[in-house]
């Protein structure tokens, strides 16, 4: 594992992603998702919305980091908020 040059932030990052996947699976077993149409133009399941949220979060981070002087934490906060909105109403 030494060659993979782990750092604390990336470890946390992947742990959170893994936890999300496990969490979604458990949620799915407990209460299966229903495909529905929210404010997004396509009908989605919970998993779809999570994916859309994560992908847009990645782009948001890149935009904030690359082209604005704002701190990355703002991007993170915005992404979490966006993810929650998306899961609930998307």
């Amino acid at each position: 594992m030494e060659w993979m040059v782990w750092t604390l932030p990336t470890t946390v990052f992947f742990s959170v992603i893994a936890a999300m996947l496990v969490g979604m699976t458990v949620w799915e077993v407990v209460q299966p998702t229903v495909e529905r149409k929210g404010f997004l133009p396509i009908s989605t399941t919970r998993g779809d919305r999570l994916f859309i949220g994560l992908l847009s979060a990645a782009y948001l981070h890149l935009m904030v980091v690359g082209f604005t002087p704002l701190s990355i934490w703002w991007a993170l906060a915005g992404s979490v908020l966006w993810l929650l909105v998306l899961i609930r109403w998307g």
Binding site: T25, E28, V29, T45, G47, D48, F51
Partner: peptide, 9 residues
């Protein structure tokens, strides 16, 4: 099965 579409993607 759980996650089939996402796995395929």
């Amino acid at each position: 099965f759980i996650g089939d579409k996402h796995l395929f993607f």
